[in-house]
Write a protein that binds this DNA or RNA. Structure first.
Length: 420
DNA sequence: TCTGGGGTCCTAGGACCC
DNA sequence: TCTGGGGTCCTAGGACCC
């Protein structure tokens, strides 16, 4: 048996922990640039704020209902996530961190016979220690555990735990779940399934295998088996080394200025290099992309990306910036209103096995020392103070973050003050 | 006026090799 | 007249996830 634990409305719950006055009040958290709604409290869901909606489209709704609005504060959410994950770890021999607010727990080797009771205990422990409410679904496969979790939210909200302990309970959950709510079924597959008369997960679970194989490839086949209680989704007990690393942002406002794009690209390249070094990886390939705002149909559109081979795998900031700017030079076009750009590094290899190239122009030993020093200084200052000239200092393309909360748990200047 | 960011996996088709 | 077949590797694009 496997459990899926996820934090309810995680980002909103994080905000609420440090601001108890928000209890009972609708809360939304916005994406970067304060663009879209990416998290909603129960109250916000109830008044009809839809996930992913642009903020300006729900502005009236927000005003009318006195909704508390926050810019996303990933420093805070990341730290709260660490705390929650560390609290559940001792209950099981093995677990997998699936996302910032979710984890799979392997309960197959536990001596407990009453997993429901165990779930209740874990849930209470986490809520008590962090103030973050969680929901737990327990079932024979990951897909069914996801489904059990969703069932718990909808039908067992007070208990917050649901265990598909037998065939009847599993049947009931399968019939309760519509195909578009199955983990692994997106818009396209949901459309396909509906057109062919499959309405619930129970319908899909009894679909003919070869039909599923033909229409939904091995992905669908795995899904079918998972719904029937046969585990097919791999487990990652150890976090895997990343295969791609991407840093990208929209600008606060559109721009035709190449120097501004160059500054942004330099910063994204630098961010990629920092992430690479943190992962102890080096990248061989780099991709730079820029595009105009597709929602502005009155503007002439330009969207382009370019792959660059970096000769010797690297995580050196200045080298990656250099290649990225070369890419920008090639794809940039004058007189276009650019809104977003980014850098992706791929073909990652562990840093210790970087091959020496005959034509290498960089002193790798020296570079490594420089980067270590740079990381050390920036880490101890808690922000990227030491940087390259092209990165600029005042980030001119900076995002909008009007409703940012404090970094309550990670910055001493921003801890919660209590007046007694 | 204002529409996020960061990932993974799979497949089909082309290039290339013997 | 009749012009192979099988394998691997790579990439672009699609689908999905949070």
């Amino acid at each position: 048996m496997y459990a899926l634990i996820d934090c309810n409305n995680f980002y909103c719950s994080c905000e609420r922990v440090f601001n108890p006055q928000l209890r009972g009040r609708p809360i939304v958290v916005l994406s970067n640039n304060d663009g879209c709604v990416i998290a909603r409290s129960e109250e916000a869901k109830q008044i009809g704020i839809v996930m992913g909606t642009p903020e300006y489209m729900v502005r009236d709704l927000i005003k009318k209902n006195n909704v508390a609005v926050f810019s996303s504060n990933y420093t805070l959410y990341g730290d709260m996530s660490d705390r929650v994950m560390k609290l559940m770890a001792p209950f099981v021999p093995k677990m997998e961190l699936y996302s910032i607010d979710e984890a799979f727990l392997d309960m197959s080797e536990l001596a407990y016979t009453d997993l429901l009771a165990l779930g209740v205990t874990i849930r209470k422990h986490i809520t008590q220690c962090t103030g973050i409410p969680v929901t737990i679904g327990i079932a024979p496969t990951k897909t069914l555990a996801k489904m059990a979790n969703r069932y718990a939210k909808k039908m067992r909200a007070a208990l917050g735990v649901h265990w598909l302990a037998n065939k009847n309970l599993t049947r009931q959950a399968l019939e309760f779940t519509e195909v578009n709510d199955i983990w692994g079924v997106g818009k396209q597959y949901a459309g396909l399934l509906n057109r062919n008369g499959f309405r619930t997960a129970a319908d899909l679970a009894s679909a003919p295998e070869d039909w599923v194989r033909t229409k939904m490839s091995v992905v669908g086949l795995r899904l079918l088996k998972e719904l029937n209680g046969i585990p097919c989704v791999e487990w990652d007990y150890e976090p895997q080394r990343k295969k791609n690393i991407c840093t990208s942002r929209s600008f606060g406002t559109k721009s035709q200025d190449k120097s501004l794009l160059a500054e942004a690209i330099s910063n994204h390249a630098s961010a990629c290099a920092i992430k690479l070094r943190k992962d102890k990886s080096s990248a061989k390939k780099l991709n730079v992309f820029i595009h105009t705002n597709p929602f502005r149909i009155q503007d002439e559109q330009h969207e382009q990306s370019i792959d660059i081979d970096m000769n010797v795998p690297t995580s050196d900031t200045s080298e990656i910036i250099k290649y990225a700017l070369k890419g920008l030079d090639i794809i940039f076009r004058k007189n276009h209103n650019y809104i977003k750009c980014g850098v992706i590094v791929s073909d990652l290899v562990p840093e210790e096995i970087v091959q020496k190239s005959l034509f290498d122009t960089l002193n790798r030993q020296r570079s490594k020392k420089v980067m270590e020093t740079l990381d050390f200084v920036n880490r101890s200052l808690g922000t990227e103070i030491v940087r390259f000239a092209v990165q600029g200092f005042e980030k001119r393309y900076r995002l909008k973050r009007e409703y940012l909360s404090q970094r309550y748990t990670t910055n001493i200047d921003e801890v919660l003050h209590i007046n007694i």
